[in-house]
Amino acid sequence: MSNDIKNASCRDVSDGELVQRSQGGELAAFEELAFRHEEKVYSLAMRMLRHEQDAEDVTQQSFLNAMENLQNFRGDSSFSTWICRIAIHGALKLIRKRKSRSMVSLDEAAGEEGDHGTIPHPEYIADWRESPEVLVHRNEIQKLLEDALSGLDEKHRMVFLLRDVEGFSVKETAELLGLTETNVKVRLLRARLQLREVLTRTLGDPDTRVVRHHKHAR
């Protein structure tokens, strides 16, 4: 991450200390926090909203909210988690606003999946040719990932982002999205299976492709 802050004394300092210095009124410390976390917040907002201008608005608003509420931040979580939470709430608010314009609720179809919906069966099953550690550095892979994510229904995408990417627990994810834990789990499973399917079609090694033998399996 680029770090062109003038105040070099901030660079080797922990987030926790930067928060304290910000609380004490040091703007440079708060700017350093922004430099450290702005790209992550923006990426999260982009993944949630799929819209550059909206993602920028949410990012900016998140840091402004953080600035306003800095005195309330007690360090129970990391600054990173805190600012991401603010961004998630901001993005969800925007999504609800979009939804109310189109008259569709965020929890639409929540009941229909319930506990018992059938789970889509994995179809293309093959070992990946390369490890994620290698793949992650390729630009075309980033594009593949974001395209696959865009292919998910919003309700599945949100759960996957909060649970698997941001690392919130099932309970926290449920609270953030206003869903039941059961619903989170069902959606998460669908999201994981669908992303696996899409990615494996590109990243899988056809020579290792395996086919389910239903006779033995059932």
Binding site: E39, S43, W128, T200
Partner: peptide
């Protein structure tokens, strides 16, 4: 084998998204 590979694929899928720097 199919189940083993599916589990492995899913683990890798999660790692990729976690580690990715998308934007």
């Amino acid at each position: 084998d199919p189940c083993k590979v599916v589990v492995d694929n899913i683990r890798k899928t999660i790692v990729l998204y976690k580690e990715g720097k998308p934007y």
